[in-house]
Every structure is written in C-alpha cells, then in structure tokens.
C-alpha cells in the first residue's frame, strides 16, 4: 500500500468531465511526477487532494486515513504541505516570520490563543524556523520583507515554510513555472536534496527537464484520466505518451 491511494475519483465542472475514474498510488519515499497537456486534469486532481475541491465519487486515502470532506488546514495538519504554482508567501512579513507561522501551526495545531507569549520567548520554534531558513540557504535574510525577494528566492522561502512542518508528503504544483534557467536549476538541486531526506513528493510539472531530473516514477494524464505510468525511461519511449503529450512539444 502506498502512502497515497486514490481510487475511482470523478469530478465534473458543469458539462466538463474533469476527472474520469482516476486511480493512482504513490509509494512512500518516492518522487512521483504527474505530467500531461493543458486541461488533462492535473490541477483538478491536486485541488481534490488538498481539500479545495470535493470530488463526486471515489476515495482519497493518505497515510491510511480518508481525506474526503476535510478542510485544507486539516489536510495540512495530517502531514501534507503544498507549494503553489505562483509562490504563496506572506509578503508583508519578514522571512523569519514567514517560517515561524507554519512552525507554530505544526506545534500548536489549527488554533491556539497564544497571546501572552512573546515571539522571542519561544526559543524552540524559533530555532526550528532559523534552521529551515538555513537549509534553503536564506538564513542571513531573515529580517528582509518577503515581498522584495526574486521569484526563485520566494520559491526557496515557500519550501522552507513547508519543510519546517516536517510533512510526510510535499505537493509541488509546477515548482519552476516562470523561472529563469538559473533559478530552475537551483530549484532542481534543492528539490533533489530534499528528496534525499526520504520525504515523499508529488510534482506536477510541464518542464520535461525538471521531470526527468527528479522523478522516480511518472504518471501521464490526458483528458481527465491517467493513460500511462512507469519509470521516466519507460515513459519517454511510450508511444501513447508521445502522441498525447510529448509529440506536441519539441524534444
């Protein structure tokens, strides 16, 4: 049994059948990429998983527990952290505060009336947050306002915010979208370092360079359903995939 088990998932938007009988399993400790052309249902699948959308039928099990009907913050508390296509950070706050918030959420749960403690007094959480910034190489900018960072650095910060929660699963929605080549390569290096710690990752990605650098396993989706699954090497040679996806893009 994988850490993520998705069975017979269906989701409609008005007349569009966005997800058709999706079955997917992700093994613990692997990097699993989901690829496919625009409109294949990748993002819908992700949104069903994190609790933003509710599927009509089917089941989603994470770590032995059903996620259907849970709110996004409950799913995060179950051990799922996500990275957005456009980095979602707290722009008005400093880098350290950006990482402190998830660190407190990890320790204190969904709500705690912690208004008599001072931020300085919470040494343990502070140390964890500083360590997480250190791990992505941004500790020296802890007092900088997050909004002023470059796209690539925002992504690093967002990863630090996820990792400080020690998630069991990290979801990445096109982690290198809109990045320069240099930023993309730096992000790939960082992500492969993270995967070496044994954390399970699911990556939705368009950039084949990223997919083949990172993934242990690849699922190809088209028209709302997985059409092929295998190692990156197998997927590269699969004619169905060529037809549905790779054939359309210059190799």
């Amino acid at each position: 049994m994988g850490i993520v088990v998705i069975k017979d998932l269906n989701k409609h938007f008005a007349g569009l059948h966005a997800l058709r009988d999706v079955n997917l399993e992700v093994e613990q400790g692997t990097v699993h990429a989901i690829i496919g052309p625009n409109g294949a249902g990748k993002s819908t699948l992700l949104n069903c998983f994190v609790g933003r959308l509710v599927p009509e039928t089917g089941s989603i099990t994470f770590d032995g527990r059903s996620l259907i009907g849970l709110r996004p913050y409950q799913i995060n508390q179950a051990g799922v952290s996500r990275v957005f296509q456009t980095p979602e950070i707290f722009g008005d706050l400093t880098l350290l505060e950006n990482v402190l918030i998830p660190a407190f959420a990890h320790r204190d749960g969904t709500y705690r009336l912690n208004l008599w403690a001072s931020l300085e007094g919470e040494g343990d959480v502070r140390d964890q947050a500083l360590q997480a910034l250190e791990d992505v190489g941004m500790a020296e900018f802890r007092s900088v306002t997050a909004e002023t960072l470059s796209r690539g650095d925002k992504r690093r910060l967002e990863l630090a915010m996820c990792l400080v929660q020690r998630p069991k699963l990290l979801l990445l929605d096109e982690p290198t979208a809109g990045m320069s080549r240099a930023d993309t390569n730096a992000t790939i290096d960082l992500l492969s370092e993270i995967s070496e710690t044994g954390i399970t990752m699911v990556v939705i990605e368009h950039d084949m360079h990223v997919v083949f650098s990172l993934a242990d396993r690849v699922t190809v989706m088209a028209q709302g359903t997985p059409i092929a699954e295998g190692s990156p090497g197998m997927i590269k040679g699969d004619p169905r995939v060529q037809e549905a996806y790779l054939g359309a893009a210059p190799a």
Binding site: L113, A117, S118
Partner: peptide, 25 residues
C-alpha cells in the same frame, strides 16, 4: 502585537490562502 497570536493575525491580512494551507483555521 509581539505574540505568535498577533503574528498569525498579520498573516491573515497578508495571505489568507497560504494560511489555510499552512494548517491554520
């Protein structure tokens, strides 16, 4: 203003979407 609670309130103003996916109700 100086407490973890106050910092979470500032985060509500800054980015409520991120906060939801950070495990905070």
């Amino acid at each position: 203003f100086r407490s973890p609670f106050g910092m979470t309130l500032k985060a509500i103003k800054s980015n409520q979407n991120r906060l939801n996916y950070t495990g905070i109700n």
